[in-house]
Design a binder for these strands. Structure first.
Lengths: 226, 226
DNA sequence: AATATGGATGCGCGGTTTTTTCATGGGAAC
DNA sequence: GTTCCCATGAAAAAACCGCGCATCCATATT
């Protein structure tokens, strides 16, 4: 079981890490919301402990954003009880809350409870997502997430990346892509595929010039590397 | 249990907050009727304590307006016993009344009683509402509320928005909407969907030209963003 | 029965966004 | 070094949506 702990107070994180590792959990850490978002995406933890007060992106916002693409159980930490009130009002999608300073035993108990619940209880509305590395497709909303940040895709762009991600590590010629994705539409120029690949790289790759997932097979076509 | 306390006398609010928090309740506050209306809408408290004399919108009016879209228990506070007589005459939908100055112990007792009663009553007749942001659907009355203000919807309009709000963040093509909402009726023109979406935006969005919830997914269809 | 009213539907124009096409330069393969 | 092949920028072409307005239809009113 892998737990992501997010807080900008290094000492507190160190303490939690020590305690949870003693309990047999794997622990990864982040010090702000943005980092947290990326780690949830790339490391796929089984549970997240998230502080509310943080630089870059606060815990509430991070929580909402994580919920856009993941159902991982989340525990929010807050410093004051008054903040807690505010927290409870809005639906950030957190599963549990804890006020600082807290008893480490209580945190451990709540983690156990949540993991048990997540393991048995049926998920809320089963969300339809497709994830590889830092790229996630939201099949319902027809959008993508790059390191947890939403990226809007056009209709054709989505069709192309969905097909490639559903059949990873497999090379498709431009003709094949036109046949499957453009199907019975007017048969367009073969270079059209290139342009869509370019747009996808611009939107989804960290460095579009050196793509890590949306790759070219020279003289053959394109493929999605998992 | 979350309680909304509404009064323009800051000192009194502070006192009530202190006492109720000691009792283990979460407390949120407002200083006039308008603010109260919004908080009931967005924060969904379990009980409301409402002063009658207030700027912007008095407690009686606020009470009536809250009743249009919520069954939350309400306790009205009034300064003079004479006003109380008047109050009792009209039906504002309040559940209990208290004359200032009151004993804090009495307020606490009445809150306990109301919450207990609501706890059992709610299980029998759950109120049917669907809320996101400033938009609320009244499933029984088949009307909508925009920031607490009632908006009349026609039959088809209600069908469309109800379906979209029950399945938020999910894109539906016009065909899919016609199939599910228009079901077995005569299959109308695909543009019909556009027109209903337009009407809904005019009625429910703050700025219909820049909708925040009822959104278009270019080349695909429409969706309700939560 | 005739008329009025309000909702649902159909159509087309104009502006916007997406998709496709095209030209050019730079890399990869041999 | 030569020959393909692909990436990139720009711009044309096509597709699509929003909106006003006309029409159809059902129900209520007189």
């Amino acid at each position: 079981m892998k737990i992501l702990v997010v807080d900008d107070e290094a000492l507190l994180v160190k303490g939690i890490r020590f305690n949870l590792q003693n309990e047999g959990y794997k622990v990864i850490t982040a010090s702000d919301g943005l980092e947290a978002l990326q780690l949830v995406q790339t490391q796929n933890p089984d549970l997240v402990v998230l502080d509310v007060m943080m630089p870059n992106m606060d815990g509430m916002t991070a929580c909402s954003k994580i919920r856009e693409f993941s159902d991982v159980p989340i525990i929010l930490l807050t410093a004051k009880t008054e903040d807690m009130d505010k927290l409870m009002g809005f639906d950030h999608g957190a599963d549990d809350y804890l006020t600082k300073p807290f008893n480490i035993l209580e945190l451990k108990a709540r983690i156990r409870a949540l993991l048990r619940r997540a393991g048995t209880a049926e998920r809320r509305t089963p969300s339809h997502h497709l994830t590889t590395g830092s790229i996630t497709l939201d099949l319902d909303g027809r959008n993508a997430y790059k390191s947890g940040v939403m990226v809007e895709l056009t209709a054709k762009e989505f069709d192309v990346i969905e097909f490639l991600m559903r059949n990873p590590n497999r090379v498709y010629s431009r003709e094949a892509l036109l046949d499957t994705i453009w199907a019975y539409e007017y048969r367009s120029d073969i270079r059209t595929v290139d342009v869509h690949i370019r747009r996808l790289r611009e939107k989804l790759e960290e460095n579009p010039a050196e793509p890590k997932h949306i790759l070219t097979k020279w003289g053959v076509g394109y493929y999605f590397k998992k």
